[in-house]
Amino acid sequence: MIWQLDIMFLVLVVISAIASVNVKDLLSSAILLGAYSFLMCLLWIEMGAVDVAFTEAAVGAGISTAFFIGFIFQTTRRTKD
């Protein structure tokens, strides 16, 4: 366990989480959430939980980002009312 890497990944995770909540565009938010998932996966690997990291990479960064983008394509740019 390398504590410098640990601190770096934690700071990046917090930054991408806050950015994905605060950004205006929905597509950017979904991509930032994918980046958050991937950094979480690196954090799990760094802590030695390789199986959890594999699940996070397959589900969090792969499938759920595709699901979010599929949902966003069903929305419209401006509200109807």
Binding site: V50, D51, A53, F54, T55, A58, V59, G62, I63
Partner: peptide, 11 residues
């Protein structure tokens, strides 16, 4: 090794 049914099914 790490992996299994759930991860492989997701891939």
């Amino acid at each position: 090794s790490p992996g299994g049914g759930f991860q492989g099914g997701c891939i």
